[in-house]
Design a protein around this nucleic acid. Structure first.
Lengths: 148, 148
DNA sequence: TTCATATATTTGTCACACTAACTATTTGTA
DNA sequence: TACAAATAGTTAGTGTGACAAATATATGAA
């Protein structure tokens, strides 16, 4: 394995990740989902995890704080999320899905699961396991903490 | 394999790709390379492919035209690249590495190859093959054309 | 030749990633 | 208690990614 190969794999990884995101975003747009892929990830995690602070959410979705701040801003503007004051800590917010946010998640979830499926055609269970293991190894090699 | 799993893999892929880029960018910064990761990719391809138009380069690096225009703008500003008029086609440019660009590529190449290596520790030849195959399968599933 | 169409590049807009610096508040320790 | 250090979140700046529309030039068919 030459060093040149490593650069190629890095390139392939980047190219594929961009493609997956771009494909999903196109489908989102075509379906008039009114949210971006990243906004969806935030909504979904809020829906599953219940009210939480921005820091907790940032750790869940692996986005940095400035990025999350802006995504939340957009979701607040769209009326899907609200920032409630934290009862004990005045520096912090409790992020809360509005009724509109809840129904948005409910209506989009099945459509988005279907979109996500497309990328994984022609691959089998064992491929997924390998893929997960390799991705997590890379992540750890670069100092990341993997989950579970 | 549930639909939920597909969403998780999409997430892992995105997270890992971001990590790889972020890690490289940090090292670039620490070494005062004076270019970003994407600027490097452009310089490297120009160095290996010789003078070419922006369209040709865009296809090589899988970036869209507006993105490439802006990256080139920055590289021109830094003095590593120049836009020479195309002899036959006045719509087009020949992108050309300046002397400064050539020596930049020469000096950075070994350092960057070393940085790229880090992500791939604890993986073997077979892992790389699997990884490449899976990434290319995903890319094709979403309508992309793979090379070779 | 002329005009519709295609191509090369740029510009504008919105969203996201990362860094650094900043405000406000809380916590730990002397 | 007082004050330094840590934490929650925001703002600003730069770079990149996707998409649409605009400009300039080239090409092909009538």
């Amino acid at each position: 394995m030459t060093q040149e190969q490593f650069a190629k794999y890095s390139f392939l990884l980047d190219r594929t990740a961009r493609k997956v995101k771009q494909y999903a975003q196109q489908q989102f747009k075509q379906g008039n989902f009114d949210v971006t892929v990243d906004q969806w990830i935030v909504l979904k995690n809020l829906s599953e995890g219940g009210d939480m602070s921005q820091t907790e959410l940032a750790n869940l979705v692996f986005k940095d704080h400035p990025t999350l701040t802006r995504i939340i801003d957009l979701l607040v503007k769209k009326g899907y999320v609200e920032r409630l004051p934290h009862p004990q800590d005045r520096r912090s917010f409790q992020l809360h899905l509005t009724d509109s946010g809840v129904s948005k998640v409910t209506s989009l979830r099945p459509k988005i699961l279907q979109i996500r499926e497309k990328a994984w055609e022609n691959l089998d269970e064992q491929d997924f396991e390998e893929f997960k293991r390799i991705l997590n190894t890379i992540y750890q090699n670069l100092g990341g903490q993997i989950l579970e």
